[in-house]
Design a protein around this nucleic acid. Sequence first.
DNA 1: AAGTGTTGTTCGCACTATTCGAACGCTTGT
DNA 2: ACAAGCGTTCGAATAGTGCGAACAACACTT
Lengths: 255, 255
Amino acid sequence: MTVDQQRRPVKTAATSFAILERLKEQGTLGPTALASELDLAKSTVHRHLKTLEQEGYVVLDEDGYRVGLRLLDFGIHARNQHNLYEVAKPKVDELAEQTGEKVWCVTEEQGRGYHLYGAGGKHSVRTPAREGTRSYLHQLAAGKAILSAFPDDRVDEIIDQHGLPAKTNATITDRDELFEQLATIRDRGFALNREEIVPKLHAVGVPITDQAGNPVGAISLSGPSNRLTDDRLEDELANLLLGAANEVEINLSFS
Amino acid sequence: MTVDQQRRPVKTAATSFAILERLKEQGTLGPTALASELDLAKSTVHRHLKTLEQEGYVVLDEDGYRVGLRLLDFGIHARNQHNLYEVAKPKVDELAEQTGEKVWCVTEEQGRGYHLYGAGGKHSVRTPAREGTRSYLHQLAAGKAILSAFPDDRVDEIIDQHGLPAKTNATITDRDELFEQLATIRDRGFALNREEIVPKLHAVGVPITDQAGNPVGAISLSGPSNRLTDDRLEDELANLLLGAANEVEINLSFS
DNA sequence: AAGTGTTGTTCGCACTATTCGAACGCTTGT
DNA sequence: ACAAGCGTTCGAATAGTGCGAACAACACTT
């Protein structure tokens, strides 16, 4: 299942997507700026942009080129393929309302975590995550919850493929340490995250599995460390999420 | 502003996107099936798929290749660029709750309509539209509302570029007829759609404009023709939408 | 108002990178 | 057991891409 390094990639397609990626990160850019960032001739970038524009994948406005809405169709389609989305959505809303914190539904593809849907309660804080965000699993409470539901060799595969890059100095960067935590998570049923992705941000995550025990995703709750103390996380909030996950699992089995 | 036919498009990038488009439409496919549909060698398709897979734009599962979640990030980003989305969303929810019908927020890019956000009330019907759907403006109530806020020459441009393709036998396919309707819409402030895109489906749409009067989108309400009679559409529902659009316009001016 | 710098755009040419086809191993079904 | 289908790999020919130079359209300065 590992996506190993490819021998002969289609470079032209890769550069088109590299352009889109830059436009997504930087907002609105012109051919010259893009060319210098990507080390390409500006005529090359221009040609790509015009091709993408013709199909609606990028749009030209007065300030330059930006990502076009044509890509929304693809994204929504990709999300709807996971029926976890529609099943978990109402539960995520409910939890956000109930706790006032930020609640996310996350799933896994190719060893990476994707934020499918998030809802913010009354006093939820801003985090770098938004819908569609791709993250490293070991950096997320939800991600570690997902990893805990995988067999060890699959976790090894994922680490081999993506490594264990750090985000803060609390991020797990050691393979053995990660496996130790995963053992604890399997034991208790939930994962914690203490400033491992953003300073002063804590979170709990619980896995969602199918009947065979394979993870199909996770739900997490995150907030400021002063409100989300260890006591509250491990007791009140973990149990809340475990109950919600259980309901989602049951509903998933009938869809 | 017209996107005229391009002289030298990047064909390789275009085929990659053609593959993605097919995967979106057909679900999960293999290289052979894709190759025959796109008139390409299956080795070519395979190479594209592997390149796309490496970046997470497609995913390989047991049944074949499918669109990957990596594209969700792009789509959400594209949607968030239009601040109409976050401003109109609560109003759309409210209208759906209030009326029980399906309510949409639509915007325009390159002369095409994009469904930004939709909410379904209690007895809302299924329509072909979902979030991200790209449509011809003249086939939508919201689309005609948007067109009515454009100057005539811009409307001409859009017709020249995209034509007036029919969806049902009630679809407007004549330029003069469209302009006549647009005049009425400008006069009354709202657009109607009577089975012009789906048989037995009626809708009302009202434009949302900025301070300069340029359209930034529209909101629409649609439902079965027996419930949405002309009387109800023109009186009760049109006024409801006009009020909502007005609020959205005010909120937009402070964002 | 003229000039200078920058940016977006077009086009010919060299050469890289893509396409095709054929062949391989693999699974599925008869 | 064999055939038929699929996904995958690789070499070779040619088509298509990328580069650079040149042009046009502004914006900003002097």
